[in-house]
């Protein structure tokens, strides 16, 4: 293998590949936010809800964790979303785009995983926190919002950072339904330039840099919201 050739090919391909970063980042940010927006209420319902609700959340989590992302992408893109957008009410909203399908699948799956991160954090708080809040006259929703979640979410950030790198990798599956993210671009340019190895390396480097930047940013967030001397009780 001629390294100069490979290097030049990679350099030429770089701008095109970087164009995929926008889509990849869009997928991850969309999926993380959707996962967060659903994961927090799911966790709260699974801890404090009445038993039928807890069962329903449990089933949801089990379902999304159980079905491979690739299968879900096909179900959503070729099935659910194409049917829904065929309905007059939803036509023309762009719900049949591969990007929407990919964000939904990654976000819903992530919400299942995120809910379990938050649930664990909520349950790791001492029972006295909720008791003390109730004893002061706070309602349960007030106590959950002002006392339980601010602590639980802080404790969740390390595990949540991990979710970022998982999503980053899962997002590469979006090329299968036609999102032109990094993976998709890598494959198409690899076949036109006949430099599959150097293109694969290039994609790997881009993914690695994205992971590094994201984890750094989340570490920064964690130190921003850290509270003097407050660490998880009993954490090793």
């Amino acid at each position: 293998m001629d390294f100069t050739v490979a290097y030049n090919a990679a350099r030429e391909a770089l701008p095109y590949m970087l164009g995929g970063v926008v889509w990849t980042v869009g997928l991850i940010v969309g999926a993380m936010l959707l996962g967060l927006a659903l994961g927090v209420p799911l966790a709260v319902l699974q801890v404090y809800g009445p038993w039928p609700v807890r069962r329903a959340v449990g089933t949801y989590v089990w379902l999304f964790r159980g079905i491979p992302i690739l299968v879900q992408m096909y179900i959503f893109y070729f099935g659910l979303l194409s049917w829904i957008s065929a309905l007059p009410l939803f036509s023309g909203l762009g719900l049949d785009s591969p990007f929407v399908a990919a964000v939904l699948v990654l976000g819903l799956t992530s919400s299942a995983y995120q809910s379990q991160i938050f649930r664990g954090a909520i349950q790791s708080l001492p029972a006295g926190q909720l008791k003390a809040a109730r004893a002061l006259g706070l309602t349960d929703p007030q106590a959950i919002r002002s006392i339980i979640l601010p602590q639980a979410l802080r404790l969740s950030i390390p595990a949540w950072s991990n979710e970022y790198s998982i999503l980053l990798k899962d997002s590469a599956l979006a090329f299968t339904i036609g999102v032109v993210e990094i993976m998709a671009r890598m494959r198409s340019i690899a076949s036109t330039t006949h430099e599959p190895v150097s293109m694969t390396f290039l994609a790997g480097i881009i993914f690695f840099v994205l992971t590094w930047v994201g984890v750094k940013a989340l570490n920064h967030l964690e130190s921003r919201v850290r509270i003097a001397g407050y660490t998880r009780q009993g954490a090793a």
Partner: peptide
């Protein structure tokens, strides 16, 4: 009754053995 409970609890202060201060 949620309202009556909150009224009761506002009027009844409680101190716990392990303090239960809000850590955050």
């Amino acid at each position: 009754s949620r309202r009556e409970l909150c009224t009761l609890r506002q009027n009844v202060g409680m101190i716990f053995q392990d303090f239960n201060l809000f850590d955050h």
